[in-house]
Design a protein around this nucleic acid. Sequence first.
DNA 1: ACCTGAACACCGTTCAAGT
DNA 2: ACCTGAACACCGTTCAAGT
Lengths: 185, 185
Amino acid sequence: MSEQRPLRADARRNHEHIVATARAAFAELGPDVSLNVIAQRAGVGAGTLYRRFPNREVLVEAVYRDDISQLTDQAVELAERLPALEALERWVRDVLVPAQQRPGLATTLNTALATAPEVFSESKKRFSEAADRLVSAAQADGAVRHDVQTRDVLRMAAGLALASIDAPDACHRMLVVMFDGLRTP
Amino acid sequence: MSEQRPLRADARRNHEHIVATARAAFAELGPDVSLNVIAQRAGVGAGTLYRRFPNREVLVEAVYRDDISQLTDQAVELAERLPALEALERWVRDVLVPAQQRPGLATTLNTALATAPEVFSESKKRFSEAADRLVSAAQADGAVRHDVQTRDVLRMAAGLALASIDAPDACHRMLVVMFDGLRTP
DNA sequence: ACCTGAACACCGTTCAAGT
DNA sequence: ACCTGAACACCGTTCAAGT
């Protein structure tokens, strides 16, 4: 997709340093830190940051790429270890929902739901495919109804997580409702 | 709650004119129009706007107060006309979800879910009570499970609506899942 | 008692000038 | 080929000065 020409050594160093600085800044100052502040902390000019990361979303994605990979790995691991429906439920409850409640990560994940799969970055594609396998397996088992799509499940979890930040008990009840609703009627 | 001392005539005129201008500006320029632009369009100084509406949320609420009342009225009307569960489902599907997909209105509604009821404005209190009656009636009928709260239903609908703007078919499927899940097991 | 509007500190973004 | 950082147009918010 996007041509990855090799970068000059200093450019490459800058790139990585900006991402690391941004990760720290997001954690320390919240997900709305100004990009100028990040550039300043990273010791680069604002222009440098903007050439590598044309908008905030691109930077956010670079910061959370590793986290997305982790979510993916956990999906794979649960799928191997547990019956299909249990794996799906554990993944949504313990992995996906908590992830959606981390502000920066949620934004990144949700653009993955909104955009067409063709423009996904590699990490998001892997994520999306792992989620697909969880849902499809639960459907093949006959545990989950066939008139829902993987994206529906992801979207619902996302919405529900967003709507219940700082209300874990409400979150739990809504997940119960959701999973009862997902069962084959 | 908030002391409503009578305003001087010009202040009162300004207040209403700002709200009307803001409503038009939100509709025309989107929900992120700058407050300075609204002040300018309303022909008042920025300071005037900020004294009446100390932050954006207060202004947004003033703009959408009438809409919230309409949502409330429709809840009451459906409750009178239909069996409890149907009334609830119709209200969520045809009234609440579309409302949650209107950016400005959604913000206002959702603070109603997040904040404690004691600080609700009058219109939000009426809204919240009407929703409560719909859910309680459906529970009293035995149609809806008792281990969910009104706020859970509102939150779920909100999250789901937010997650499926511009995806009406996904929205429909998620609502099916939600209402199946809400049934008494 | 209320209003005005210039002023402040900040934001994202660009682009001439440097190495 | 890449970087710097001043500059631009804008934001929300404040507050002295006016009526």
